[in-house]
Nucleic acid binder design. Structure first.
Lengths: 111, 111
DNA sequence: ATTTAATATCGTAATATTGCAATATTAAAA
DNA sequence: TTTTAATATTGCAATATTACGATATTAAAT
């Protein structure tokens, strides 16, 4: 098939999967790290920071934007990209909750 | 091309991407949530919990295991799967750090 | 020894992702 | 207005993912 059967899962499961997928590529991790390292959000040189062609970088940015991980504002003929705190927080909370539950379970004897 | 150019990125970027990719499917989110909901780790009924066929579930479990998100122990003719605290912690720490940095940046005026 | 139950693997079709060259778009600069 | 710079889109080839039927494996139960 190839397509995942999203309608069989909860909205929460689907949206977490979409967010995780957006992050699930080394280039997109690199983009996130670069956005964090830059002082201002106005950054027109992401392409030069990555070992990929301009169209490929543009595509990765689009995927991050579609998933809501980053926000983009037009600033003249450059574009200001910045991280979306809320989307990152959803992922952070999920893994935090998972971790807390694992620790509690392991306390009660497990693998 | 289709294959990502992993050799152009850092080990950290690649391993974070692998972990995120393992989680980046609603069925695998569902598996994680189910493993958390069960008291013991001995669980031989993951297939019945998911709206997917047995081979498909088995494949998803394999991917989670390959990425280190879950661990599997053979228990007779059933298999005991449980979450790997360390792998989840890597993801948790990453998103926590990103979040802290975003908050600090936004304080210093940004988007 | 045979059956049963649980899980894994193989093969394959449908679809998605990755990457880039070529080209388009857009707005500032000259 | 022409050029330049920055980013986006299109088209396409290579590869990866998702899903499942059929089949294999494995160990307990009969």
């Amino acid at each position: 098939m190839g397509a995942s059967k999203t309608d069989h899962f909860t909205d929460e499961q689907n949206s977490l999967a979409i967010l995780a997928k957006a992050v699930a590529h080394p280039a997109r991790i690199a983009i996130i790290q670069y956005l964090l390292s830059v002082e201002s959000c106005i950054c027109g040189d992401i392409v030069n920071e990555l070992p990929l062609s301009q169209p490929t970088v543009s595509q990765h940015l689009k995927e991050l934007k579609n998933a809501g991980i980053i926000k983009g504002n037009i600033e003249g003929n450059a574009i200001c990209y910045c991280l979306n705190e809320q989307a990152i927080d959803v992922l952070h909370q999920f893994f935090k909750d998972v971790l807390v539950k694992i620790v509690n379970k392991n306390k009660a004897s497990c693998c």
